[in-house]
Simulated assay, not measured.
Amino acid sequence: MKFAGSALVAGVAMFVSGCATVPMTSKELSAQAKRFDAPPAGQSGMYIYRDSNIGGAIKKDIWIDGECLGESAPQVFFYKSVDGDKEHVISTESEFSPNQISIFTKSGTNYFVRQYIKIGVFVGGADLEVVPTEQGASAVQELSLAQSGNCSK
């Protein structure tokens, strides 16, 4: 009985603390992305970020249209230019199956998607939400740009 209680406490502690890390880009590239320039002609900008320390030891993959964007950790963001005037599917791994959202992007517009960790049965799960531009841009200003293309699966 003591072991089960100790395991539960250790699991909760790992969920709310810890420090997962992922490969990062240079400070210069991060600063450039935070200017929120208009995307190239015919493109939309996609900022996907994780601004919470909840589940700090947990890394979660993120995909756009089935392609690996990267593995998230607390306090990081990704930027990707995608085709404009088209629907895109953003997905993240969760506890039992991926969670996903669809966004129809307008050319010349930046979009912000927040990934957040939620309590799961065995491990933390992840979910996504589209956020208003002002909220997303404000959050991204406090984060660091992670390298794309590194997923666990």
Rank of each mutant, 00 (worst) to 15 (best):
L29F: 04
L29R: 08
L29N: 09
L29W: 02
S30I: 01
A31P: 05
Q32V: 13
Q32P: 11
Q32D: 14
A33H: 11
A33E: 13
A33L: 12
A33D: 13
A33S: 14
A33W: 14
K34I: 15
K34A: 11
K34T: 15
R35F: 10
R35M: 13
R35Q: 15
F36M: 00
D37M: 12
D37F: 11
D37C: 05
A38S: 07
A38I: 08
A38W: 04
A38C: 03
A38P: 06
P39N: 01
P39S: 07
P39M: 05
P39C: 02
P40K: 06
P40I: 07
P40H: 06
A41W: 08
G42W: 01
G42F: 05
G42H: 00
S44N: 09
S44P: 10
G45K: 00
G45N: 00
G45S: 04
M46C: 02
Y47F: 10
Y49H: 06
R50I: 01
R50T: 01
R50K: 02
R50L: 07
S52G: 06
S52T: 10
N53C: 13
N53Q: 15
N53R: 14
N53F: 15
I54P: 02
I54F: 11
G55K: 05
G55Y: 04
G55F: 01
G55D: 07
G56E: 07
A57V: 13
I58Q: 12
I58P: 06
I58A: 14
K59V: 12
K59D: 13
K59P: 11
K59S: 14
K59Q: 13
K60V: 15
K60R: 14
K60Y: 15
K60G: 15
D61P: 04
D61V: 10
I62C: 04
I62E: 00
I62R: 02
W63R: 10
I64R: 00
I64W: 03
I64C: 02
D65W: 11
D65P: 04
D65G: 05
D65M: 08
D65F: 12
D65A: 04
G66V: 08
G66A: 09
G66M: 10
C68T: 09
C68Y: 03
C68Q: 02
C68K: 06
L69W: 04
G70K: 04
G70I: 05
G70T: 06
E71W: 09
E71V: 08
E71Y: 10
A73V: 09
A73Y: 11
A73Q: 08
